[in-house]
Amino acid sequence: DHWHVHIDGERIRLDGASEEFIRTLEELIRRGTDARELKEIIKEYLR
């Protein structure tokens, strides 16, 4: 599956992301997590 998110107007691909990770991201977004912080979390995950 190819997922991607838009954060700060930037399109970030989440290739190979699990549904669990996507749900976690959605939860963080709902909580109002800062965009820079979200991008860091995604970069760490994709390593």
Score class of each variant (00 low, 15 high):
Asp8Phe: 02
Arg23Ile: 07
Phe21Leu: 06
Ser18Val: 05
Thr33Glu: 04
Gly32Cys: 04
Tyr45Gly: 02
Asp1Ala: 11
Ala17Thr: 05
Arg47His: 10
Asp1Val: 08
Arg23Tyr: 09
Ser18Thr: 12
Ile12Tyr: 14
Glu44Asp: 08
Thr33Gln: 04
Asp34Asn: 14
His2Cys: 05
Ala35Gly: 09
Leu46Lys: 06
Asp34Ser: 14
Arg23Cys: 04
Asp34Cys: 09
Glu37His: 11
Ile22Asn: 02
Leu38Ile: 12
Trp3Asp: 06
Ala35Cys: 06
Gly32Asp: 03
Ile12Arg: 01
Glu19Asp: 10
Asp8Asn: 09
Arg13Met: 11
Gly32Pro: 02
Leu46Ala: 03
Ile7Lys: 01
Asp34Arg: 08
His2Ser: 14
Glu10Gln: 05
Tyr45Arg: 02
Asp8Arg: 03
Ile41Ala: 07
Ile29Gln: 04
Leu38Lys: 00
Ala35Glu: 07
Ala17Phe: 07
Leu14Met: 05
Leu28Ser: 03
Glu40Tyr: 10
Glu40His: 11
Glu26Met: 15
Arg30Lys: 10
Ile41His: 06
His2Leu: 06
Ile7Gly: 01
Arg47Glu: 09
Leu28Gly: 01
Ile22Asp: 00
Arg11Cys: 09
Arg30Asn: 08
Arg31Tyr: 07
Thr24Asn: 11
His6Val: 15
Lys39Asp: 04
Lys43Arg: 14
Ile29Gly: 01
Ile29Asp: 00
Glu26Asp: 09
Val5Met: 07
Glu26Thr: 13
Thr24Glu: 10
Ala35Asn: 07
Lys43Met: 14
Leu46Met: 13
Ala17Gly: 05
Thr33Pro: 02
Ile7Ala: 02
Glu40Trp: 14
Gly32Arg: 03
Gly32Ser: 03
Lys43Gly: 09
Arg23Val: 06
Ile12Ala: 01
His4Tyr: 11
Glu26Trp: 15
Asp8Gly: 08
Leu46Asn: 06
Arg11Ser: 15
Glu10His: 09
Ser18Leu: 04
Phe21His: 01
Arg31Glu: 08
Lys39Ala: 07
Glu20Val: 08
Trp3Ile: 10
Lys43His: 11
His4Phe: 10
Arg47Ile: 12
Leu25Glu: 00
Thr24Pro: 00
Gly32Val: 03
Ile7Thr: 01
Ile42Met: 03
Ile12Gln: 02
Ile29Thr: 03
His4Ala: 06
Ile12Val: 09
Glu26Phe: 14
Leu14Cys: 01
His2Gly: 05
Gly32Tyr: 04
